[in-house]
Amino acid sequence: MITLWHYLAVSAALFGIGLVGFLTRRNLITMFLCAEMMLQAVAVNFVAFARHHGNLHGQVFVLFILAVAACEAGVALALILMLYRRGKTLDASAWQTLRELGVPPAVDTDPLPVETRGEEPRLADAGVRPEPAGEEAARV
C-alpha cells in the first residue's frame, strides 16, 4: 500500500534535485526549468496531502501554484530575454557587477574543451562536374 509518506519522500527528492540544479547550473533557462521542477515537487506534496485529508483544498492550492508558475514563466522569460539582449549570453555568472568594491571578479580558470568536429559533408558546387574519386575513377 502506497502511503502519504511515499509521496512526500519522492517530492522531497524531486525538490532536492531541482535545488541542486538551481544552485549549480549557470544557464538561465536551465535554472528557470529547475525552479519549475521545485514547484512540481511542492505540487505533488499538496496533492498527496489532499488525498490524505480527503478534501480538495490541497488541489486548489496546486491550481494557484499553476497560476503563479505561469506568471513566473512570463516574467522570468522576459527578464532572460532582456539580459540576453544586453550581454549576448545566458550565463548567470556574467552579471556580477553587484560585487563589493575591490573584490576581483570571479574568473573561470579551466579552459573550455575544444570541440573537434569532422568536416561537414558538402555538396559539390553547382555547374561543375564532380571529380570522380577513388575507385570510382576506375569505373568511369
Binding site: 549549480t24 549557470r26 532572460i80 549570453t89 573561470d108 574543451p113 570541440e115
Partner: peptide
C-alpha cells in the same frame, strides 16, 4: 538564444 555550436560558459560550467 543558445549558441549554435561549441562549448559555452553557461552550459559547460557549474557553480
Amino acid at each position: 538564444l543558445s549558441h549554435a555550436g561549441g562549448p559555452s560558459d553557461e552550459n559547460d560550467r557549474s557553480r
